[in-house]
Design a protein around this nucleic acid. Structure first.
Length: 650
RNA sequence: GCCGGCAUAGCUCAGCUGGUAGAGCAACUGAUUUGUAAUCAGUGGGUCGGGGGUUCGAGUCCCUCUGCCGGCACCA
């Protein structure tokens, strides 16, 4: 038999018969390694212990202790174990797919009856039995026809469809967990007992379309999470509880920021406190935009369909638009308007007023544009996903050769704002030409390169999303990661030669001829509603002082301090700090608790001592320790803190 | 939009197999003048999301609409 040479991580190489499996290699090293082994790396590829190796290669045996692929394997095996448990309990259930995802896995099932929370308990119990049985995992490569015949005979149409979608030359691999079989790419563990039985949990059931296609069957998806240890699972569940406490919907109510109600689904009723955040943020962005060379504009809400037809929205976006019919004086034909879902067509109208020269470019236009989009009901989510929202929208009209420098300028602009708002962890994604597109390949080449070069020049790496661009141009997406690791796409820069074409925007070039400008759609926050939601969750409601809606509460300890409390609050107000008094006949404990729960960053407590000494006792949110400060001193300090970052000295 | 779940006082939630609504906090009134995360006592407050049905009787069972929640699909 032919010999192959396997090189171990320590650099030593040994000869084995060709076709040796990593399991046999592990066994040849030690009994304990054979037992502990879960998979292998063969020339870097993740390898099942049962797969034969038929060439010289570098090999490393993976065990549960290493960080590497252990968790992924465990989660993958759990997906199979769960599917097996489900089919053992309900034999008529059809199986589909069950991939590993962040923190766990899911598996999609086709079953007439819905799974209930009680069912999850049953499934979990059965899974633990399967794990306790330490059933061996076995694998074989099958002929395509045999696999299809097998699944047709066992009544698994989804598996048949999966096989039919796999390219013909690819081998089909079957796995058995005990007697239960599934089509699977692998690799898997050696036996079910290698899964930690106390470190997983089934979380929820949800609907999911077969193959992610909304025109196809709705399946039932069961989600599970799994870790290496019970403690790690516990830590994860605790993290979820912490995340729930940060939920902007909960904090929005507790902090009295806004509410929503049935009569206006997906639209926000901003309360005074919430609106303070909104306007403070808006004022800040407005100053930044002015400094960045943007001219602010404002455009109509209700616009005749003619413009939407010309812009292409009527064709492409109508489902998402609020359409308004107006029957003016019983006219023969009703006028049809739509609430604007985007600001760009209106901005082109402004650009089109009067002749523009190449000297006017780049022409940067900004609007806090209120948009209305008829979002599908299931998409709505607090103030993060709404039907009425305001974008920090902007459009840069420029020539194609200005795209790169405008992009570079925008990235600098955006990074400054994110830093001011406390976000340092964000990424860029470049979406490139999709299959269905307009424009020449040469033009796509140039524009994609311009965007990429601008990112690189600014020192930012980016991920390329092949084919994810709009039909008319590529785009950059700027994604923030919040404090608990969730990603939010906020900023965007999209290159659009199409809309200026459709709406016939022109400028006069140096050559005296008319030229078509390119339009860059760009936003930094995305929408105020979503961004404020992100801010609330990022800070768990404890917003930076300058953004906090209620910055200072001056709380009396005795009613004899009332007058001085008012004086302190007035002095702070005059210094531009949002201060209020709490002179209620309550104990200081009560007031401290209430305002702490309300996330007020600074409580100034005032009793006899402070009145006499003209001081205040300062209690900052989240700190047990208080400090005493002279009135003038604290006013100066808080005035500085209340100043938005762009207005601070230095 | 699709699948599943939920909807009871301002908030958080009880209300068993149908017999005409309850707690804590909040609010209001009074007492208390208080030293850093809930002082005490009293009072008021709900056509049980809307509509329809079954029943002698519906918060509870059925249908339907709306909204919300978890996903999917869609997306700023």
């Amino acid at each position: 038999m032919a010999q192959i040479s396997l090189t171990f991580p320590d650099g030593n190489a040994r000869a084995f018969d060709a076709g040796v499996t990593p399991a046999e290699v592990a066994a040849s090293i030690s009994k304990s390694l054979e037992k502990k082994a879960i998979s292998a790396q063969v020339d870097g590829a993740h390898w099942d212990l049962q797969w034969p190796i038929d060439r010289d290669a570098a090999i490393a045996i993976n065990t549960m202790n290493e960080d590497g692929p252990a968790l992924e394997l465990v989660r993958h095996d759990l997906a199979h174990i769960m599917a097996r448990a489900v089919q053992e309990i309900w034999p008529d259930v059809k199986v589909t797919i069950g991939p590993v995802i962040d923190n766990g896995w899911y598996y999609d099932f086709d079953r007439a009856e819905p799974f209930t929370p009680e069912d999850l308990g049953l499934i979990e119990k059965r899974m633990r039995e399967i794990i306790a049985a330490r059933d061996p995992v076995r694998t074989e490569v099958w002929e395509r026809d045999r696999a299809i015949a097998h699944y047709e005979a066992s009544g698994e149409p989804y598996k048949v469809e999966l096989i039919e979608a796999i390219p013909g030359d690819e081998p089909l691999r079957m796995y058995w967990h005990g007697e239960w079989q599934d089509l699977c790419r692998g690799p898997h563990l050696q036996h079910t007992g290698q899964v930690p039985a106390d470190a997983f949990k089934l979380m929820s059931v949800a609907g999911a379309y077969w193959r992610g296609d909304s025109s196809r069957a709705m399946l039932q998806r069961i989600y599970g999470v799994a870790f290496k240890s019970k403690d790690a699972l516990k830590a994860h569940l605790t993290m979820l509880e912490e995340a729930a406490k940060r939920d902007h919907r909960k904090l929005g109510r507790e902090m009295n920021l806004y509410h929503m109600q049935e009569e206006a689904p997906g639209q926000v009723f901003w309360h005074p406190s919430g609106w303070t955040i909104y306007t403070t943020l808006q004022d800040y962005i407005r100053r930044r935009q002015r400094a960045g060379g943007y001219q602010e504009v404002n455009t109509p809400q209700v616009v005749d369909r003619k413009l939407w037809e010309a812009s292409g929205h009527w064709d492409k976006y109508q489902e998402n638009m609020f359409i308004v019919e107006v029957d003016e004086d019983h006219a023969r034909e009703k006028a049809i308007n739509a609430l604007k879902p985007m600001n760009c067509p209106c901005h082109v109208q402004i650009f089109n007023q009067g002749l523009k020269s190449y000297r006017d470019l780049p022409f940067r236009m900004a609007e806090f544009g209120s948009c209305a989009r008829y979002e599908p009901s299931g998409a709505l989510h607090g103030i993060m996903r709404v039907r009425g929202f305001t974008q920090d929208d902007g459009h840069i009209f420029c020539s194609e050769d200005q795209i790169e420098s405008e992009t570079a300028t925008f990235i600098a602009f955006l990074s400054r704002i994110y830093a001011d708002l406390g976000f340092h962890d964000w990424t860029i994604k470049l979406s490139t030409r999709p299959e269905k597109r307009i424009g020449s390949d040469e033009s796509w080449d140039r524009v994609e390169k311009a965007l990429g070069d601008a990112c690189r020049a600014a020192g930012y790496e980016f991920e390329v999303l092949e084919g994810e661009g709009a039909f008319y141009g590529p785009k950059l997406e700027f994604t923030l990661t919040d404090a608990i690791g969730r990603d939010w796409q906020c900023g965007t820069l999209q290159v659009d030669p199409n809309l200026p074409e459709r709406l016939q925007a022109t400028f006069i070039g140096a050559d005296g001829a008319k030229h078509r400008p390119v339009m860059l759609h760009r936003a930094v926050l995305g929408s105020f509603e979503r961004f404020i939601g992100i801010l609330i969750e990022e800070h768990a409601g404890k917003l930076p002082f300058w953004l906090a809606p209620r910055q200072v509460v001056v709380a009396s300890i005795t009613s004899e301090a009332d007058e001085y409390c008012r004086e302190v609050a007035e002095k702070l107000t005059a210094a531009g700090v949002r201060a209020e008094t709490d002179l209620r006949n309550e104990k200081i404990n009560y007031k401290v608790r209430e305002h702490s729960v309300g996330k007020v960053p600074v409580i100034l407590a005032i009793g006899h001592r402070e009145v006499e000494e003209r001081t205040v006792t300062v209690r900052r949110l989240g700190e047990k320790q208080t400090s005493v400060a002279a009135l003038d001193e604290i006013c100066g300090e808080l005035e500085t803190e209340a100043t938005p970052p762009d207005l601070r000295a230095g």
